[in-house]
Amino acid sequence: MAAAVRLRADFDGPGLRKLARASRDAKQGRRLLALAAIYEGKTRSEAARFGGVTLQIVRDWVVRFNAEGPAGLLDRKPPGCRPMLDAAQRRALAQIVEAGPIPAAHGVVRWRLIDLAQWVWDEFALSISKQTLSRELRALGYRKLSARPHHQAQDGDAIPAFKKTSPPSWQRSARASRATVVCHVHADPSDQASCVIAARLRSRPPDGTRQWLLPVGRQGDYTGPTSSQF
């Protein structure tokens, strides 16, 4: 059985408990309390029971704490997979994208992801998927753009002759449509109190005038006429 790793001597139990109370990370606080129990004379098995982990994990905590202090007990983001392309390969990929394909050499007139994946295989002997290559290109600042189809024999001068110039199928009615209008009328100009009256615009009478009906609102505050002719 391996010997227990001793804790560093520049910390003690009360100090770790104080750090655990001040910590905003619950997992770090739990690990600090487990190590504080070891400082206070508890066994490693009891510390593992306090932390809800195994003895091996307590040993890992001790190693990290001895190397980095309380900051070593924080969770770290895993590094993830190693990038498939290194810096030199990314620069070469950016150069070939900027230069564009040579139809006689590459067999295409514009780059597609599948074409660039084939170029990466030919140049670096790396098999890369289109999804991974797309992420690499986005990291380099490139975006996938699809050009609008353009026929090689298209005549730009003849396009206006085929545009639709017929008038619209609908026209505005000559009669005034019914609408609801909200009028703001001041009962007394001195106090600037608004009296909101709903008026319905009726159709034009035979004499050519428009009649406004003012039947609703705060009529107690309104001292003007109830209808008017325009």
Rank of each mutant, 00 (worst) to 15 (best):
T209A: 10
A87G: 09
A22C: 01
D12T: 00
R143P: 08
A117T: 11
L214W: 13
P149A: 12
G141P: 02
S129V: 05
G41H: 02
V181I: 10
C183D: 12
A193G: 08
A198E: 09
A67H: 11
A47Q: 00
F162H: 15
P70Q: 06
I197L: 04
C183R: 12
A37I: 03
L137G: 02
T223V: 15
E40S: 02
D155F: 06
M84A: 12
D155T: 10
S23G: 03
G224H: 07
L145M: 07
Q219N: 09
Y142M: 02
A36H: 00
H106A: 12
A158K: 08
G41L: 01
R49Y: 08
T226K: 15
A71P: 04
G29C: 03
L113V: 04
M1L: 03
E46A: 10
R143D: 14
L113S: 06
Y39H: 05
Q89A: 12
C183Y: 13
R44E: 14
Q28I: 01
V58D: 01
Q192D: 11
L85Y: 01
A125W: 05
F124C: 01
L133S: 06
A176P: 03
A4S: 10
S129R: 10
D115R: 05
S45I: 12
V63I: 13
D157S: 13
P167F: 13
L137V: 03
Q56K: 11
I159Q: 11
I102Q: 12
G100K: 01
R202K: 10
L19S: 07
R138Y: 14
A3L: 13
A105M: 07
K18I: 10
G100Y: 02
A4E: 08
R31D: 00
P70D: 02
